[in-house]
Amino acid sequence: MSVLLFLFLGALLQKFGLVAVLFLVTLGIAAYSTYGERKVAAFLQDRVGPDRAGPFGLLQPIADGVKMFMKEDFIPQGSEKWLFILAPGIFIFVALMTGAVIPWGTTLTLFGANIDLQVTDINIGILYILGFTSLGVYGIMIGGWASNNKYSLYGAIRASSQMISYELAMGLSVIAVVMLTGTLSLRTMAEMQSGFNWTVIYQPLGFLIFFICALAECNRAPFDLPECETELVGGFHTEYSSMKLGFYLFAEYINMFISSAVIATVYFGGYNFPFVDPAWLGGLMGPVVLFAKIFFFIFVFMWIRWTLPRFRYDQLMHLGWKVLIPLAILNMLLTGAGVLWFES
């Protein structure tokens, strides 16, 4: 009995440890994404970027964090106080929750113990991610509405309609992958793509649709209409200051990180790489490969932001409803036909 309890506690401790590590890594990557974003923007524009705080400006995120904490925390008059405070919390909470189902690697052997590098392998992992990304919009909507500011409300409304429009195409492109792999579990999907058997080879159109939708879901340029500075003075977070604004900005980078992780896992083989066994280095090779892919996609996200201009609102809706959804349905049909053809 006591042995069982000990094992149970050990497993629990392992999971807690993994969650804590994942949490810290996510926050760290989000913090350094802000730095990376500014550096990438600078390099793309022939500038230097932040280089004052520490060597190459590496301490810039810490300086930014200190600044965020030191700023005056302001709650505007006429706002819904509790919702105003709650909204950034919801946003960052939802953003952090999605990391739980992503398989970061196979198993890690540490001090003789085998640690499963995935918080939970629920058999509907991809749906879980879709569900939580669809909830992220509440943080924006509640925050925008509670601010009692018309620009914030505009931002919130834009965010919600954009999210609904692009979620559909995203889900449809994912369905094609599910038909191909026959599973909803991200772990199984990653396992099936060993070597160079990546899904993107079979699903180039689906990947393109998913990528565009991921950009839109993260409110990244060229789909950053909810927070566009030129029209909406910052959109839904116009009235936010101090660490509440910090939460919003942070959560956006977390979303970007998670989106990159999902893209890498679903379409680009996850922790697999040709001629590289994810079990090398005591299982550390898997996370290394996956993070390399994730960083590449984060870079692509930034690269796109600093290249393409923002969409106009009607163009956004046109692209979402009249281009991406029909394309996604076509992709689904083609995949279904292909699966039928090769199965029989």
Binding site: L127, L130, G131, S160, I164, G171
Partner: peptide, 21 residues
């Protein structure tokens, strides 16, 4: 999960959207 995606994630967003407008 489908309940969350469909009801919380889409339909209630639309509700909220209309309420705010």
């Amino acid at each position: 999960v489908v309940h969350i995606i469909v009801y919380s994630g889409a339909i209630m967003v639309l509700f909220l959207f209309v309420m705010m407008l």
